[in-house]
């Protein structure tokens, strides 16, 4: 959990292990529209202690389910403008199949389980909590 932009190169470097032959990353960005409404930015809030333990549990699950060497995840809190990176997942594995699958697993579980909430700020000045995920 990070309350300021994180250097992606630093996150990625942790995953560079000699056993790995493939690396897969997913980045979630703030998009300029949601449900047809123009978005200026998103304010992310989190229950940080639980978000951290739940995120670590998800990464551990991914390591047990898939043949990967290493995985890491980062999620932002605070106000992010369109184009900023809200979430970053990186997975290193011997082969690509496991890297892709684990990366997908981690982002899907984060979206379902980790106590993080987004309040969208629309271009009109209106703000609204996003009620639930539209996949």
């Amino acid at each position: 959990m990070a309350d300021a932009p994180v250097d992606i190169t630093t996150l990625r470097r942790v995953l560079l292990v000699p056993e790995a032959g493939g690396f897969c990353a997913f980045e979630g960005w703030v998009r300029q529209t949601n449900d047809g409404r123009a978005v200026a930015g998103i304010d992310y809030s989190a229950f940080v202690p639980l978000a951290r333990t739940e995120g670590q549990a998800i990464v551990q699950e991914a390591k047990q389910r898939f043949a990967i060497c290493h995985a890491t995840a980062m999620h932002r809190t605070g106000y992010l403008s369109v184009g900023e990176t809200a979430v970053w997942i990186g997975v290193a594995a011997a082969h690509r199949d496991a890297a892709f699958s684990a990366c997908r697993y981690i982002i899907d579980e984060i979206k379902q389980r980790v106590p993080i909430w987004k309040k969208e700020h629309y271009a009109t000045g209106v703000t609204e909590w996003v009620p639930c995920h539209t996949r």
């Binding site: 333990t53 379902q112 980790v114 106590p115 993080i116 996003v130």
Partner: peptide, 29 residues
Amino acid sequence: VAINAAFSPWEQPLRDGDHVVFIPPVTGG
């Protein structure tokens, strides 16, 4: 619901001093 920063059953008995957070539907990512 999270009691003392861990997801817990809704019917778990509360104890004096517990920290309680009700978790609205999450929308991270």
